[in-house]
């Protein structure tokens, strides 16, 4: 197997990169030409050559010194410029189709990570040709032994994908439905408006001149009432639709949980900090004016001549240093761990 990959490392200069080495057609002259590769040996051959050579069945690779038997149906378009990456992706696909367990198949994360590690090892070995034959044999053996399991996992996967697709489709349908209802209502509204305008005109022509203002006012009120009613109606309908949709949707429950979770902020300790402090902070001067004249403002505050003197320092003030932070931090530290009785807690542990 290693010999197969050695040829890959041939460096191609820019000109030969765009030229089919078999028929010497140049991309420059025929811009429509495409290159294909075969995962058997990854040699680049242009489309017309593939048609020409492999249409009649399997044939050896036209590259000199290769000679691998290639089939036409295995030829594919090259996705990555670097053939090494192309090959790794192919290997990855192949191993992934055999080792297709997911995290839910394992009891704990450790086991799953171990499984992923084995997969990576196999891919690495195949890719770099380390014990390649052995690994290949192992892979085939595993595939044979776990045939049923692999099939089952595959089916589960496709089921899930189908679920998701169905969900997306239903979502789209719902959106369309909502839009349709809204449009319909708009049309109705328009008609009603025309109708009411007509009514108004009729009334104005037949009614007495003195009640004109009143009629117009009444008309406006009616319109306002109606529009708010319509709005409520629309809201109701969309809510109904949403509910209906959610009931029939398998992913709804998860989505809801997800939403709920979003409301809880992230807390590194699996819980929120207790915001009740163990101490009551005395009033601390925080105003610039107070700080500049600190001697007259600390009678109710903490007494620490050294720190209080620093509070006046303009350099400190400019950098955001505040007396309050100093005191608060010291007090916080005084009560962190006060109630931890090591002897008791470590003895029971």
């Amino acid at each position: 197997m290693p010999s197969k990959f050695q040829s890959l490392t041939i460096s191609l200069d820019d000109r030969s990169k765009d030229m089919c080495p078999i028929c010497k057609t140049d991309k420059y002259l025929s811009p429509n030409m495409n290159f294909l590769i075969n995962p058997e040996c990854y040699h680049k051959i242009c489309e017309s050559c593939v048609d020409r050579i492999f249409s009649l069945g399997p044939a050896p690779c036209p590259y000199a010194s290769c000679g691998k038997i290639l089939r036409k149906n295995r030829f594919k378009k090259q996705i990555f410029d670097d053939l090494r990456i192309e090959r790794e992706i192919d290997i990855r696909k192949r191993v992934g189709s055999v080792y297709n367990k997911t995290e839910e198949d394992f009891d704990d994360l450790r086991e799953f990570n171990k499984y992923l590690e084995t997969i990576e090892n196999i891919i690495f070995n195949l890719n770099y040709g380390i014990d390649a034959e052995e690994t290949e044999a192992d892979l085939v053996k595993y595939e044979q032994e776990h045939k049923l399991e692999i099939l089952e996992k595959n089916m589960r996967q496709s089921q899930k994908n189908a679920d998701l697709a169905a969900y997306q489709e239903a979502m789209e349908r719902l959106k369309q439905e909502k839009l349709r209802i809204q449009k319909q209502m708009e049309v109705e509204d328009m008609e009603y408006q025309k109708q009411s305008q007509q009514d108004l005109l009729d009334k104005l022509t037949t009614g007495s001149a003195s009640s004109t203002d009143e009629i117009i006012k009444q008309q406006q009120q009616n319109a306002l009432k109606r529009s708010s009613l319509r709005r409520r109606e629309l809201q109701q309908i969309t809510n109904q639709l949403d509910q209906q949709f959610n009931k029939s949707n398998p992913l709804y429950k998860h989505a809801k949980e997800l939403e709920e979770n979003l409301k809880t902020p992230f807390t590194p300790f699996k819980g929120d900090r207790d915001l009740n402090k163990n101490y009551h902070l005395l009033p601390i001067p925080n105003d610039i004016d107070e700080l500049m004249d600190i001697e007259n403002h600390i009678s109710d505050s903490y007494f620490d001549p050294y720190v209080n003197q620093l509070a006046k320092n303009k350099e400190y003030l400019g950098a955001g240093w505040r007396l309050q932070h100093v005191f608060e931090k010291a007090l916080d530290e005084a009560f962190i761990g006060l109630g931890c009785f090591i002897e008791k807690e470590k003895a029971t542990a």
């Binding site: 979770n261 807390t267 207790d274 163990n278 761990g337 931890c340």
Partner: peptide, 26 residues
């Protein structure tokens, strides 16, 4: 989505817990 949902299941019960300063020290 499923995996995230599974992780979320544990969260609600821990939601109410408050972390005291002593817990922090622990």
């Amino acid at each position: 989505i499923k995996r995230e949902a599974e992780e979320n299941v544990e969260q609600p019960e821990a939601k109410k817990k408050r972390i005291s300063n002593d817990d922090l020290f622990r």
